[in-house]
Structure formats: structure tokens, C-alpha cells
């Protein structure tokens, strides 16, 4: 009984604590004229997206790591007096120390210089491949969706056919014809990688074609090119950016994988995947030779994916109030 009463009293006390007084309803500021005309301050879509992205801690961490990796890929090789391909057979398989910060490999090459040179190659391949894949995908998907009819049918059948061929077959075919190296690798990735982008863009455009603002522009006499460049691409650009960001790590990973199995970059040129391959040969005795490039690959891919996710949230118009 007594306990119950105490509880009640506590509840009443609590009610009094949160009871509102007229002071709580202080006017924070009303601008009548503004209320009538505009519901929110004029910020462009991009300012808005950037504001949201900044609030996203993981995405900002992603950007931070990417920046560091990029800077190191540029300046890293110059920070040591060794080159990525200069071997020194007197100092092979040295553990990391003050002289060789990441140690040396089985030919005595400085791993610090090689890791950042490798990052350079991997990043360059990643960005180049992603850009090419996306541009080709946008152009072909755009044409397909915009023109429709027989051309659309034809393009989509070609996409289906290409899509059914495993990309390793392309890689091997191209290597047979062109040889190994960065160029054939990029070529193989681009040939297989634009398909999904083209499909995505075409699908988006078919949807946008029914949108009233696109119909309105058509009614004003806008040409197909104008519709595509002025109305459709700007309205799917956020999706394209996210796709582009996501395509970079997947290209980096494909390159690493092919180099790891010996089909990609050949020494003395190097890449993160190729470094892991050499490192894995010595894995049991000199684990750092594998661990260091693996960490750089993982960090790069992780941070790009984090950024991609963050961009998706920040650019998603449905989140917009």
C-alpha cells in the first residue's frame, strides 16, 4: 500500500516536472512573408547533399582514408631513396626497419616504394576502368532507352549475350591477342563492366520518360538530346555517382585478383594484387610481405565502399524533406 502511494507521488512529481508553462511556448521567430512564399531556404541540391554527407561519420572516415592512400600513392615512392624496381641482392627479405620502412622482398626491392607504386597502379586502373565503364554504360544505355523500339531491342540483346560470357574468358582472349599488361586488363574490364551500367541507365530513362517534367519539356519542343542531357542525366546523376564510386573498388579487386593468380600486372611493374602474389610466396617466413599490401587493398576498398554508401544516403532524393 505504502509503496503504491509513493509511486503515485513520484509520478505526480514527474508530471509537474514536465508540465508546460507559457514560457515554453515562446515564439522562436516567424516571418510571415517568408512563410507564405518559401518553405525552406534556398540551398542547391549539392549543398544539401554535402551537408548530409558531412554528418555521416563513416563516410567521412572513408574520404579521409582514401585521401591518405591517394596522397601516399603520389608522394610515397619519393619519400625513400629507393625505386620500386631497383633490386639490391645484398639486402633481400629484410624485415621492416629504419632503413627499409616496410622491409625488402626476395630480390631486395624496397617494399615501401613498391607498395605505393602498386597503389598508384591499382588506383589508376580502378578509376580509369570505373570511368570508362560508366561513360560507355551511360551512353549506350541512354541511347537505348531514349530511342526505344528496334534499336533498343537490338542493344539489349547484345548486352544479354555479352553478359552471359564469363569475364575471365574475355580476359584470357584479350591476353592472347594483345598480351599482358595494364592496357589489356583495362580493356577486358571495360568490355565486361559497362553492361550493368547500361541496363541501369536504360531502366531509369524508361521511367523518366513518363515523368511529367520530361513530358513538359517535350511539349516545349525539346530534342531527344536535350531531354537526355538537360533533364534525365541530371536527375540520375546521383545514382551514377554512387555506381561510379562502387565500381572503383570492384575494379581494384578484379585487378588484384587477376594479378594474384598471375594473369594481371607482371613484375617488375607492380600493383597491390601483384605484391600480394609475391608476398604470398614468402607468407610463412616473411608474413609482412603479404600483410602490408593486403592491408592497403582492404583499407582502400573498405573506405571506397563506405564513401559509396554514404553518398547513396546523402544523394537519395527520397530522404529529402
Amino acid at each position: 500500500m505504502a509503496e503504491e502511494k509513493l509511486e503515485q507521488e513520484a509520478a505526480v512529481q514527474k508530471m509537474e516536472d514536465i508540465a508546460l508553462t507559457p514560457q515554453d511556448f515562446e515564439v522562436v521567430g516567424i516571418n510571415l512573408a517568408e512563410g507564405q512564399t518559401v518553405s525552406r531556404p534556398s540551398v542547391s541540391y549539392w549543398q544539401d547533399a554535402w551537408r548530409r554527407l558531412k554528418k555521416n561519420k563513416t563516410a567521412m572516415l572513408g574520404i579521409f582514408i582514401i585521401l591518405i592512400v591517394c596522397i601516399m600513392a603520389i608522394v610515397g615512392p619519393f619519400m625513400v631513396p629507393y625505386t620500386y624496381n631497383g633490386n639490391d641482392l645484398m639486402h633481400i627479405n629484410q624485415s621492416p626497419d629504419g632503413e627499409h620502412w616496410f622491409g625488402t622482398d626476395q630480390l631486395g626491392r624496397d617494399i615501401w616504394a613498391r607498395v605505393w607504386q602498386g597503389s598508384r597502379v591499382s588506383l589508376a586502373i580502378g578509376v580509369l576502368v570505373a570511368l570508362l565503364q560508366c561513360s560507355i554504360g551511360v551512353i549506350i544505355g541512354g541511347i537505348s532507352g531514349m530511342l526505344g523500339g528496334k534499336i533498343d531491342m537490338f542493344i539489349m540483346r547484345v548486352v544479354d549475350i555479352l553478359n552471359s560470357i564469363p569475364y575471365l574468358i574475355f580476359v584470357i582472349l584479350i591476353m592472347v591477342v594483345v598480351g599482358t599488361g595494364i592496357f589489356p586488363l583495362v580493356l577486358a574490364f571495360v568490355i565486361t563492366g559497362w553492361l550493368s551500367m547500361a541496363r541501369l541507365v536504360r531502366g531509369q530513362i524508361l521511367q523518366l520518360r513518363e515523368q511529367e517534367y520530361v513530358l513538359a519539356a517535350t511539349t516545349l519542343g525539346a530534342s531527344k538530346t536535350r531531354l537526355l542531357l538537360r533533364h534525365m542525366i541530371p536527375n540520375i546523376i546521383s545514382i551514377l555517382i554512387v555506381q561510379l564510386t562502387m565500381a572503383i573498388p570492384s575494379a581494384i579487386f578484379s585487378e588484384a585478383f587477376l594479378s594474384f593468380i598471375g594473369l594481371g600486372i607482371q613484375p617488375p611493374m607492380t600493383s597491390l594484387g601483384q605484391l600480394s602474389r609475391t608476398g604470398s610466396e614468402m607468407m610463412k617466413v616473411y608474413p609482412y610481405q603479404l600483410i602490408i599490401p593486403s592491408i592497403v587493398i582492404s583499407l582502400t576498398m573498405l573506405s571506397l565502399n563506405l564513401l559509396g554508401d554514404g553518398l547513396r544516403d546523402a544523394l537519395d532524393p527520397r530522404m529529402r524533406q
Binding site: Y45, Q211, E212, Y213, L215, A216, A217, R230, H231, P234, N235, P317
Partner: peptide
């Protein structure tokens, strides 16, 4: 057009 929300290009 009917829908004043869909008939103006949000990016312009």
C-alpha cells in the same frame, strides 16, 4: 500538367 510536384524538373 496535373501534378504540380512531378511536372517541374527538381534539378532546375
Amino acid at each position: 500538367f496535373q501534378d504540380p510536384y512531378a511536372s517541374l524538373d527538381p534539378r532546375m
